[in-house]
Amino acid sequence: MKLFAAVLLALLAGLLIGLWLGRGGGQAITTRLQQALVGQTSFLPPPDALAQQIRRDRVAFFRASPARAEVVMLGDSHSENGPWSELFTGTTVLNRGIGWDSSQDVLDRLDEVIARKPATVFLLVGIVDLRYGQEPEAVAARIRTIASRLREAGIRTRVQSVLPVAARLNEPTNERVRRLNELLRPDPDFVDLHPVLVQGGALDPGLTRDGVHLTPSAYVAWSRHIEPLLPSRSN
């Protein structure tokens, strides 16, 4: 009874905070409280009210846009922060990255990406899930679902390896990243980003300032690594 009461109180707290922060905020906090009760550890704070609004605005803009492109860069903040149109000159590119997006968030908005009718999607998502404490097997299953839905729509889908965090953050996240990437590696269009962005199983310290997000030089290295896979330059 005591455990049930604790769970109930945690859920109620999450819902109340969600009403205060706005739509979507309560779900993330409720998840964090549930994880704490079962012993899971989250290393990523949920987005605050402003970040939640920015995320909603970004999705609304995506859905209102009439744009078409050969390539879509899809995922979380790693994709969002990339200046892809400048890096891939001669190729039309849409940025469909949203900070804090989990694999489920990407799956929920996938219809908009399919509507753009790109030739190729470069997918990178999963680190948010792992840093919230989710199991690599569950994350891999959702990523496979995303790739399958895109391919069913006739879109070539490059599943990129999930990037670890820098060693200085002292998180156990990187072991989970390794496990997730091993599950994704059999994908026929798996793209390993680790040779250019990772050192010793952790994010290259010279390519990040906060241990998670990438520097401009990291995006140059990333873009050069995948440039041969652009639809205009590959079979």
Results as ranks from 00 to 15, higher is better:
L74A: 10
L87W: 07
Q199S: 06
I17Y: 13
L33F: 07
G201D: 04
P164Y: 06
A115W: 09
A153E: 05
P46V: 02
T91D: 05
G25M: 01
A141K: 14
V7D: 08
F4K: 14
F88D: 01
L16F: 14
R63G: 03
A221W: 02
L107Y: 04
V71L: 04
G75H: 03
V121F: 12
S223G: 13
R158G: 15
S77M: 07
T41K: 13
R178Y: 10
G82D: 01
G18K: 01
S102T: 11
G24Q: 03
Q104A: 08
S85G: 10
V162N: 02
S234C: 14
R96M: 10
L183M: 06
L110T: 00
S79M: 14
Q52F: 07
P216C: 08
E171Q: 05
W222V: 02
V59N: 08
G18H: 00
P118T: 01
T215G: 12
G206P: 05
L19D: 15
V191Y: 04
E175C: 01
M73C: 11
P83T: 03
L15M: 13
T145N: 06
Y132T: 13
R116P: 07
D187G: 10
I54C: 04
N235Y: 13
H225V: 02
L12Q: 09
F43I: 07
Q35E: 14
S161M: 04
E86T: 13
V177I: 09
E137P: 02
A147H: 00
R32N: 05
A60E: 14
D187A: 11
T91L: 03
P188G: 06
L169S: 05
V128S: 09
G211E: 02
L9G: 12
L150F: 09
H194K: 08
L107N: 11
L184T: 08
V93F: 12
R144K: 13
M73T: 06
S232Y: 05
V198H: 09
L163K: 08
S234F: 15
E80F: 08
I114G: 01
T173E: 09
V162S: 03
L124F: 07
R96H: 15
R68S: 14
A13H: 03
R55N: 14
L230S: 12
A13Y: 02
G126F: 06
I54R: 14
A167Q: 13
P46L: 02
T31W: 10
S232E: 08
A147S: 06
L197W: 04
A167Y: 08
S85T: 07
V212Y: 12
L9V: 15
I98W: 04
R158F: 15
F122G: 05
R168Q: 10
A64Q: 05
D101W: 00
E86N: 10
T91Q: 11
G18T: 04
R68F: 10
L15H: 13
I146M: 07
D48W: 02
I98T: 11
L19Q: 15
G133A: 13
R168K: 12
G22E: 09
M1P: 15
D187Q: 13
G75L: 03
P118Y: 00
V196D: 11
Q52S: 06
L11N: 05
G82P: 00
A69P: 08
V165D: 01
P118I: 00
A221Q: 04
T92K: 12
S232D: 04
L8Q: 15
R224W: 01
L12P: 03
G24D: 02
T89N: 11
